Computed example of a mutant assay.
Amino acid sequence: MSSAFAAPVRAAILDLDGTLVDTLGDFHAALEEMLAGLGLPSIAAATISGFIGRGTEHLLRQTLAHVGAPAQLYPQAWERYFAAYRRINGRFSRVFPGVEEGIATLRAAGLRLACLTNKPGEFARGLLEAKGLAPAFDAVFGGDAFERKKPDPLPLLKTCAALGTAPAATLMIGDSGNDAAAARAAGCPVLLVTYGYNHGEPVRQVDADGWLDSLAGVGEVLAAARRA
Rank of each mutant, 00 (worst) to 15 (best):
F5S: 09
A7G: 07
P8A: 11
V9D: 03
V9R: 01
A11W: 00
L14Y: 04
D15H: 06
L16E: 01
L16Q: 03
G18C: 06
G18N: 02
G18K: 00
V21N: 03
T23N: 07
G25Y: 04
D26C: 08
D26Y: 02
E32S: 14
M34H: 06
A36S: 11
G37Y: 06
G37Q: 05
S42K: 15
A44T: 11
A45T: 06
I48F: 01
I48W: 03
S49V: 09
F51D: 05
I52M: 06
G55K: 11
H66V: 11
V67I: 14
L73V: 09
Y74N: 11
Y74E: 12
P75C: 10
Q76S: 13
Q76T: 14
Q76F: 10
W78P: 00
E79K: 14
R80V: 08
F82D: 14
A84K: 00
Y85Q: 03
Y85E: 00
G90I: 01
G90W: 00
F92T: 01
S93V: 00
R94K: 13
P97L: 11
G98T: 07
E100F: 07
E100R: 14
G102Q: 08
A104L: 13
T105P: 04
T105W: 05
T105L: 13
A108N: 15
A108E: 15
A108W: 14
A108F: 12
P120D: 08
G121M: 08
G126C: 08
L128T: 02
G132T: 11
G132N: 12
A136H: 12
F137H: 02
V140C: 06
G142R: 00
G143D: 03
D144T: 11
E147H: 12
E147P: 02
R148A: 15
K150Y: 07
L156T: 03
K158R: 15
T159C: 11
T159L: 03
C160I: 03
A168L: 10
T170A: 09
T170G: 02
M172F: 05
G177I: 04
N178I: 03
G187W: 07
P189V: 07
P189N: 10
L192K: 02
V193A: 02
G196Y: 01
N198L: 10
G200E: 06
V203R: 00
V206M: 07
A208Y: 01
G210C: 12
L212E: 05
L212M: 11
S214T: 15
A216K: 09
A216H: 09
G217D: 15
V218P: 00
A224D: 12
